[in-house]
Design a protein around this nucleic acid. Structure first.
Length: 853
DNA sequence: CGCTATTCATTTTTT
DNA sequence: ATGAATAGCG
């Protein structure tokens, strides 16, 4: 196999480079992934380098996976025997520390290879706790700012002591104290945060010559992708790995450095030739992705930057279509314009993939809403990803706690979830005890119970929790992770809690947990250990969730790095939003924003749309603030632009905001407002104004029209999407489905175990209940079916007469109608509608209710 | 203790 | 608009 054919001379030169340092300056769309994969294969096949001595580092797990796959495919049969290592820096570090981390205990007492990874949420929880301990609150400093200050400190290799020394004010000293305590908490729990993963690996390799040499010998060839976004620790790590040779090939583009705020140091790439004298430098400047127009526009924008090596991309492609510039009256019009343009485009060319890019995540909302009214399916990348959802984190926290009882953050997370009567006071007692004896919270619970330090009630609850964990812990090592996970959900009562939960979100939560169990199952099938499963969960990123086949993707520009789309929209090109107001006063940050703009524009292959609004509301409510167009728009040569301005926006004024308000209002009161409210009317109006047929025709044969704005069926959180029918798919169905949450017979999959309840509680769509409603009472959700309400067996006490449909009297609210009852006996929760007071949810035990016959 | 209602602040980007 | 932190009630 020839790995050189089809490459241009520069690409070829890069692939053929053998030993010694190499810097590949690869412009956007210049085929760098191709170069990396081909070079790996070339080294293996032509230069007879063992695959296992090649280490390639990428920016995301997904990129790593794809690269590995491509290499394997290129190598063909037999290539797998001696596979190269392809991973992210973070994953690589985790593997090093898990494998060879023992020596680290000498310089980090208490460290073991079973360390745990604390993610963003865990970090935040610690900072909050530390603040509380020190009597600080967000007045002093935002939690997030403290966290980022600590992170920056770590990246600059500053210890808490350094913070103390550098502190010029009491503020600074307090921050140092926070840092110190934060680190202390991590150490006590034997946990590492993201920064630590890199930092401690560097320290390990520095400290332990044996390990350093082992890795130096093991990896003879290093390749680092996205080099412009490496930070100091990553740089040092590379140097350490390359001490025995200088076979380091880095690939990057200074114009695409967009992670400075997170510690990435653009100097790493700008100074590579200084760091590695004699380095060969190859520029890849031929672009294979975009039209000439797009390329020219992007190049013109980024040319305004000064911190660059200078590069001019060229292409053989045609000029292509001009770039569309749209000025909307406000954010809603902008979203509608984008949705409409997408709709039109896809009607014309259904096979195109479209991306809408934006600077900040919150911008996705409006666009989602606009797309939904065109009935277009889309996929949002980022936001709340699968592993960030509360229920998933809860379940994983149990699992982590089993593996590492010192995990205080995890313990606090699940101690009272589901509610088992362990409240604030008790937690405080535990914390106090733990601090006094310098033991973990888990140990404190144990010793506190043994010494009878808690009240009787608390002790009972804590005892139950303790037994639960111990029970789950039994035989842990022998059980596959998915089994353990299932046991956790069942025995902890978590599954039960969600089953009983009548809220509409519960359905999604159950689904997510099913998904988690099957993910664990998949991991088991692949032969992964629980630890590996958890590591994976901690290290996945939003961009790992990109579905390249999705027809419409919504994502931040950061998440779009490395991707390409035939059609790209960049929304919200306004001063203050993009460039972001936080970057406005700093020239360096402004340049990074400009690079971000460059990255965004160069994602486009054929068509590029830029849009901005003349005014925009900062958050939900009023008032809209005037916006000036982004300076970056002015940097695009005018002759490349085609303006579509106001006359387009004038004729239609669909008030998305007002409409939404109305829908909510109606939904909330659930009353019939005489005139049938149905937003589809508005939609058809919207279309007829433009001479288009309503696109989202109702599904054939289905009853009343369902208002669009409230439906979100197509949108599923990234990890939750059924869209990756992986190898484990069939196993997933059989092993996971229905096991946790029994499914009523005849119910479609996808609505796992949800009682058929009020879905869209709009207008008349809810059938009248059998219960007669007193006049004037709002028509409400029907009471639960008799299965729940009349539980004849053991409701002997006085609560038994309170049931749905009964009228009761309350000392304060007077007479009311019982709408539903959950549970029975003292614990029963009763929902009563009191005319004039609205809905009240009462607990039988507390509320002194009398039944009126 | 747990739930609910109310306040309040909040929107950069994330391995 | 949304969510997190707090206060008050049963």
């Amino acid at each position: 196999m020839d790995f050189l054919s089809g490459l241009n001379p520069q690409q070829r030169e890069a692939v053929e480079h053998f030993e010694g340092p190499l810097l590949i300056l690869a412009g956007a769309g210049s085929g760098k992934t191709r170069v990396i994969t081909h070079r790996i294969c070339y080294l293996i096949k032509t230069r007879n380098v063992p695959g296992s001595s090649i280490l390639a580092v990428t920016f995301t797990n997904k990129a790593a996976g794809e690269m590995k796959e491509r290499v394997m495919r290129l190598l063909g049969a037999g290539g797998a025997t001696d596979a190269p290592t392809v991973s992210t820096f973070h994953s690589f570090c985790v593997r090093v520390l898990r494998r060879d981390g023992d020596a680290l205990a000498q310089i980090r007492p208490g460290f073991t290879r079973n360390f745990q990874i604390y993610d963003d949420d865990d970090q935040l929880a610690i900072v909050k706790r530390v603040f509380k301990q020190l009597g600080l609150d967000e007045e002093f400093m935002k939690y997030r700012s403290a966290l980022s200050a600590i992170s920056q400190g770590k990246n600059r290799k500053q210890s808490p002591e350094d913070f103390y020394k550098a502190a010029m004010s009491p503020q600074g000293e307090r921050l140092a104290k926070v840092y110190e305590q934060y680190d202390e908490e991590l150490r006590k729990a034997n946990a590492l945060d993201f920064d630590d993963l890199l930092l401690e690996t560097v320290r390990l390799l520095r400290h332990d010559a044996v390990t350093r040499e082992w890795y130096g010998r093991r990896y003879q060839f290093l390749m680092i992708d996205e080099y412009q976004d490496t930070n100091r620790s990553q740089y040092e790590l590379m140097r350490l790995l390359a001490t025995q040779h200088t076979n380091v090939a880095v690939v990057g583009d200074e114009d695409q450095s967009i992670y400075g705020w997170r510690g990435a140091d653009i100097k790493n790439i700008l100074d590579f030739e200084k760091d590695f004298p004699g380095a060969k430098v190859i520029r890849l400047e031929q672009n294979y992705r975009s039209s000439k127009t797009i390329l020219e526009a992007a190049g013109a924008v980024v040319a305004h930057n000064t911190a660059r090596k200078g590069k001019w991309l060229w292409t053989e492609a045609d000029a292509g279509a001009p770039i569309c510039l749209f000025e909307a009256a406000d954010g809603e019009q902008e979203a509608l314009y984008i949705a409409e343009a997408i709709d039109k485009t896809l009607k014309r060319e259904p096979m195109l993939r479209v991306a809408v890019l934006y600077r900040t995540n919150f911008q996705s909302r409006q666009i989602e809403e606009a797309l939904r009214r065109y009935g277009r399916k889309y996929k949002v990348v980022g936001g709340l990803s699968f592993y960030n959802r509360a229920e998933v984190k809860d379940a994983l926290a149990y699992l982590k706690l089993l593996l590492n009882p010192k995990d205080n953050v995890g313990l606090l997370r699940v101690l009272n979830v589901p509610a088992r009567g362990i409240g604030k006071t008790t937690v405080e007692q535990i914390e106090k005890l733990a601090r006094a004896q310098n033991i973990s919270l888990w140990e404190a619970i144990g010793s506190g119970c043994d010494d009878r330090r808690f009240g009787a009630r608390a002790e009972a609850s804590l005892g139950a929790f303790r037994r639960l964990i111990l029970e789950l812990n039994e035989g842990l090592a022998e059980r596959p992770p998915d089994q353990t996970l299932k046991q956790i959900l069942e025995k902890s009562g978590y599954a039960k809690m969600l089953e009983v939960d009548p809220s509409p979100e519960a359905e999604g939560r159950r689904g997510n947990l099913q998904e988690l169990v099957s993910a664990a199952d998949d991991a088991t099938q692949r032969g992964e250990t629980v630890e590996e499963f958890l590591d994976h969960a901690a290290l996945v990123s939003d961009s790992d969730d990109v579905d390249e086949k999705a027809q419409i993707s919504l994502l931040t520009i950061h998440n779009a790095k490395g991707l390409e789309f035939p059609v790209v929209f960049i929304a919200g090109m306004e001063e203050g939003l993009f460039p972001h107001s936080r970057s406005r006063d700093n020239e360096e940050q402004l340049e990074e924003e400009r690079r971000l703009c460059y990255v965004a524009m160069t994602r486009a292959e054929k068509r590029l749309y830029l849009s901005h609004a003349k005014s925009r509301r900062k958050y939900g409510g009023s008032p809209p603030e005037p916006c000036t167009p982004s300076r970056f728009l002015g940097e695009v040569p005018q002759q490349l632009l085609e303006s579509l301005t106001d006359d387009h926006s004038a004729p239609f004024h669909v008030d998305l905001y007002g409409e939404r308000q109305m829908v909510r209002e109606v939904a909330r009161r659930n009353t019939y407002t005489g005139k049938t409210y149905n937003s589809l009317d508005h939609i058809s109006q919207f279309f007829s104004e433009r001479g288009i047929q309503t696109p989202a025709a109702r599904p054939p044969g289905q009853g009343p029209l369902v208002p669009m704005p409230l439906r979100r069926p197509e949108v599923v959180a990234p990890g939750n999407q059924s869209g990756k029918p992986s190898a484990g798919e069939s196993a997933r169905q059989s092993s996971a489905q229905g096991a946790l949450f029994p499914m009523p017979p005849g119910q479609a999959p996808g609505q796992v175990g949800v009682p058929p309840k009020q879905r869209s509680p709009i207008a008349g769509s809810v059938p009248a209940s059998g219960t007669p409603h007193p006049a004037g009472l709002p028509r409400l959700v029907p009471p639960k079916p008799p299965a729940v309400t009349s539980m004849p067996s053991k409701a002997a006490k006085d609560g038994s007469r309170v049931r749905a449909g009964a009228t009761v009297a309350h000392p304060k609210y007077g007479k009311g109608l019982v709408l539903r009852k959950e549970g029975d006996g003292d614990e029963a929760k009763i929902t009563v509608s009191f005319p004039g007071h609205g809905l009240k949810k009462l607990v039988a035990k507390y509320a002194s209710l009398k039944v009126v016959d």
